[in-house]
Nucleic acid binder design. Structure first.
Length: 266
DNA sequence: ATGGTTGTTTAACAA
């Protein structure tokens, strides 16, 4: 089973890219963030035609927006309004029984970016991000009490490891790599419960990026990336983990998203 | 330290 996560940064603008991705990677499940699309304008028919009859979405105009496309029947839809802001930042599913793994619960997150100033007392957006992470911890703990395999994925807007950013030294006071948010994220991703599938098995010294800013003349040459996108799986399904792919090619597509798709094969 | 770009919705905001 192949599961993709991608911050698509407008599903309407990048629908051709999404269809292209589907053709190349042939995933079973796709978790999207920043669809920036109200539900009534979601390109539903096109994606059903592309082989995804089961679609759940949580959209709003202009900002945020998450969706899950699935070839596997969805047994249950999970919704939660984090921080009571009516932001479209979360949707989850419980799949029907899969052949070897059984049912799977997939949590698709778009964590707030948090603005620019790393002082949460001054910057309300960073304050919101930190509260969101606290609530995420509580929310997920209810699921990890059960025996069903869990996956957390999406744009978490935090690069926790030193080598999840192009320069730990330059970015330690930059939101996405500050100590306070990293501590909160590490507190959620308890190694007793979760396997950080994108970092697991890769030497600590190796850089991993999934996002490169638009604000560089040549993203590939400057290579100032960050690992903002995550896939975590609970330990009880770790034995099914086969492969991981960071699909960097997509950053060079015409009109690219600033994030690239990431895929896990179970 | 500053400024660089993109997307949505219509001049400002968020990333």
């Amino acid at each position: 089973m192949k599961i993709v996560t991608w911050n698509i940064n407008s599903i309407r603008l990048r629908l051709p890219s999404l269809l292209n991705l589907i053709n190349i990677l042939n995933p079973d499940i796709i978790c999207l963030q920043e669809t920036k699309c109200p539900d009534d304008k979601f390109p539903y028919d096109e994606l059903v035609a592309a082989g995804f009859p089961y679609i759940v979405k949580n959209g709003q105009p202009s900002y945020n927006g998450v969706a899950i496309l699935s070839k596997i029947k969805i047994h249950n839809i999970l919704q939660h309004d984090f921080c009571n802001k009516k932001d479209s930042r979360y949707i989850g599913i419980e799949t029907s029984n899969t052949k070897d793994i059984g049912p799977l619960v997939i949590h698709n997150f778009y964590v707030p970016a948090g603005g620019d100033d790393p002082n949460p007392q001054i910057n309300e957006k960073f304050h919101h991000k930190l509260l969101f992470l606290d609530e995420m911890k509580d929310y997920l703990s209810k699921f990890t009490e059960t025996s069903i395999g869990q996956i957390v994925t999406g744009d978490l807007n935090i690069a926790p490891h030193e080598n999840d950013v192009w320069s730990h030294k330059s970015l330690k006071n930059t939101i996405s790599h500050t100590e306070i948010e990293i501590n909160k994220l590490n507190n959620i991703c308890d190694p007793e419960i979760w396997c950080d599938a994108l970092r697991h098995g890769i030497p600590d010294s190796e850089k991993i990026y999934t996002w490169w800013s638009y604000r560089n003349k040549d993203w590939e040459k400057s290579n100032r990336g960050r690992k903002l996108d995550h896939i975590w799986i609970t330990k009880n399904i770790e034995e099914f983990k086969k492969d991981l792919l960071i699909y960097k090619d997509a950053r060079n597509w015409e009109r690219p998203s600033d994030h690239v798709p990431v895929m896990i094969t179970l």
